[in-house]
């Protein structure tokens, strides 16, 4: 009897361990598959792949620079917008919002974080881009035409779609994500600390800026990095509105492309081994970039959990 249950124990232990190994196997499989798949392109272009802007399927000359540029710039602008607004929402939810509404708005934001990215894409293409093209875009181009630097960044014509539009859609998409994480971190701040600051006569803003934010900085940064990881790899929301042009233009209003948009648009129609392989190498680059960002995010959030005495060390 005892031996039998010992055997069953060992078998179940092994079974769960195998499942855990499968998780590692998937990760290893992704890297291996992408690595093997991109070998022809790596052999053909070497390091130049990363520094070449040309993307020409006809002459089979491929470079990742335009796609990488689009990915990095659109995510960067999206973060510039979404981080302050997301933190603002978190401040609103923890300090300003009436208690009765707090839960409701919090739930609404969390639910909206679950809306699939293709919905943001279709909305961006059919609703946002035409309105943006007709109203804000010409106005911005007009206002900034004599301002140095900005006149080049926001140069016409107004297409509606383009890198800047993709950034705006991305920022809306990652916004609920940032505010949900930030709110959760804000709530871990011991209320005695906040009360102490209020008792000293601090205003709400001073409490947020000098007590709550410094206390929760690792969590906020970790959450922002997670959101950045999402933004960098986001495919559908970007593919719809970025314009799919393989070039680097000074103007943010010009059509561009991103790594994920290039793969989504061209992969199923690619002909020739080198074309395929170049697209897969783009995937490998994207995986590399997001891996670094997500790894940093995780390490920061883990450190925070340990400090908070959480169970998952």
């Amino acid at each position: 009897m005892v031996r039998r249950s010992g055997f069953r124990d060992a078998r179940f232990h092994l079974l769960t361990a195998t499942a855990a190994i499968i998780v590692l196997g998937i990760f290893g499989g992704v890297i291996t598959a992408l690595g093997v798949g991109s070998m022809p392109a790596i052999r053909a272009f070497g390091f130049d792949f990363l520094t070449t802007e040309t993307w020409n399927p006809v002459t089979e000359k491929f470079g990742a620079l335009a796609s990488m540029y689009g990915t990095v710039i659109s995510s960067f602008i999206a973060m510039l917008i979404a981080v302050p607004v997301g933190i603002g929402i978190a401040i609103f939810l923890t300090e300003i919002c009436p208690r009765a509404l707090r839960r409701l708005i919090g739930i609404a934001i969390e639910l909206l974080a679950g809306i699939p990215s293709i919905i943001y894409g279709i909305w961006g293409l059919f609703v946002f881009a035409p309105i943006f093209q007709a109203t804000a875009q010409p106005w911005i181009i007009d206002r900034l035409q004599d301002v140095p630097v900005l006149q080049d960044l926001f140069a016409g014509p107004p297409y509606g779609i383009g890198i800047f539009t993709a950034s705006l859609i991305l920022s809306i998409m990652i916004l609920p994500f940032i505010s949900a994480v930030t709110r959760d971190v804000f709530e871990t701040v011991p209320s005695t600390q906040k009360e102490a600051a209020y008792a000293l006569g601090c205003t709400t803003w001073e409490v947020m800026w000098q007590v709550v934010l410094p206390f929760s900085r690792p969590g906020v940064v970790g959450g922002a990095m997670l959101a950045l990881g999402r933004a960098l790899g986001e495919t559908m929301a970007v593919t719809f509105v970025i314009g799919n042009a393989h070039r680097i233009t000074e103007s943010l209003f010009a059509p561009g492309t991103s790594i994920s948009a290039t793969i989504a648009n061209e992969f199923s129609e690619a002909v020739g081994d080198l074309y395929y392989s170049s697209l897969i190498e783009l995937g490998l680059i994207l995986f590399g970039i997001t891996f670094i960002v997500l790894a940093v995010a995780q390490l920061m959030l883990r450190a925070l959990e340990r400090r908070a005495g959480g169970v998952a060390a």
Partner: peptide, 21 residues
């Protein structure tokens, strides 16, 4: 660690992976 990376990794990469294998 690996699981949390997979959790947030770009889903298009998963498409490429399954295409390859």
């Amino acid at each position: 660690f690996v699981n949390d990376i997979l959790l947030s990794a770009p889903s298009i990469i998963v498409g490429l992976f399954i295409y390859e294998v």
